[in-house]
Design a protein around this nucleic acid. Structure first.
Lengths: 199, 199
DNA sequence: GGTAGTTGTGTACGGCTGTACGCCTAGTGC
DNA sequence: GCACTAGGCGTACAGCCGTACACAACTACC
């Protein structure tokens, strides 16, 4: 009986043998990062969020940097999977425009919280080379998804556009009209037959 | 003898009556933010960078948050002025494409350091309402500049595109071809006569 | 039942943080 | 020359930080 019988007020939580503890800690770390930012992400705060003792932190993770890196890796992986799944049933440019618009407006399985974590990751990666490979892999995968529909140049533009639109959206205090987003996306997707440089 | 009493040559720096001290501190704060990130921006680090005693920090600024906010405000103001100046001599869409491409590639008076500070600001603004108005004002101004040349929808798209392209560029380990950037920008600038949604 | 081994955690420590404040010093008016 | 005032700063303090580690709790095996 190693289970969590733990009555309220029991002196021993007896939470031994918790195989998913490390994962729970990572999820809690992502919550803390999303809510308080990477700067305020401390062992104690994450431990409290995951409802585990402080000692578990250094037991399961070599250091705080290690915890951060693993949490970010986990998030990026999940974002990439979501991204790929979201475009799975897309066929043709009309679908693509709609799908990208969904993505920007949080209707694609990734909400503001997820994007906030992603931006925390970007900024952290700016200074931490270990995180750089996480962002590079994530960008490579999202780019690859888009390249199923458009040429590489358009793909790079579209990817950057999504990044910027989402950032502006979560920073803006006023709601952004979805139709306008769709129009912008549609313009970025248009094939490059009529050049605008020489207009 | 608990004090360190800092001999080191001159015992008295005698740096009294330094009217530009507050400004120097703000500049040093921006340097520290750019190099170490907002999370590592401490009173002591900024004081060392500005070569002023620690006591000057709380003397000139109510708190660290106040210092951060003023530094960010200063940076945003300078970025906006640079932005506006960069587009002053732009006439027509060809010029515009070139100017925006310059902006992305750091040939417009704003380098990677400046953009890094801007992203630190964005992320800080995500959680600090006082900073939100700084980012909103900055975005309003950059949007206004672009609207001299294109319609509001295109302006929003272009602004977001720049944000995303720059972010990808400073995160990328490999150089980004300028011609490709120009092509992407050109596509975003094209007038919306031939719709792509119904392709 | 006993013992060796493994797993998990409470706690303490040195270091760094933001901030307050008493003291010192450079100016000023006589 | 001197007292006075206001401006400037060295230093102390309480608190939070990451991390290490002795020890407690549980399991496995004899």
């Amino acid at each position: 009986m190693t289970d969590v019988d733990q009555v309220a007020g029991a002196s021993r939580p007896a939470r031994r043998h918790d195989p998913r503890r490390a994962e729970r800690i990572l999820e809690a770390a992502l919550d803390v990062i999303a809510e308080h930012g990477v700067a305020a992400t401390t062992h104690r705060l994450v431990a409290a969020a995951a409802d585990v003792p402080l000692g578990s932190m250094t037991y399961h993770f070599r250091s705080l940097a290690d915890l951060r890196a693993q949490a970010f890796r986990r998030h990026a992986e999940r974002m990439a999977v979501t991204y790929e799944a979201h475009f799975r049933d897309v066929h043709g440019l009309e679908d693509l425009v709609e799908a990208v618009t969904d993505l920007v407006h949080g209707d694609a399985g990734a909400d503001d919280r997820d994007w906030a974590i992603a931006y925390e990751l970007y900024l952290a990666a700016l200074r931490d080379p270990a995180l750089r490979e996480v962002t590079e892999s994530w960008m490579r995968r999202s780019r690859a998804v888009l390249e199923r529909f458009v040429d590489p140049t358009t793909s790079r533009g579209l990817d950057a556009l999504v990044e910027g639109l989402v950032m502006h959206k979560i920073l803006s205090t006023r709601p952004v009209p979805r139709a306008q987003t769709r129009e912008i996306v549609a313009r970025a997707v248009r094939p490059a037959d009529s050049r605008g440089t020489s207009a």
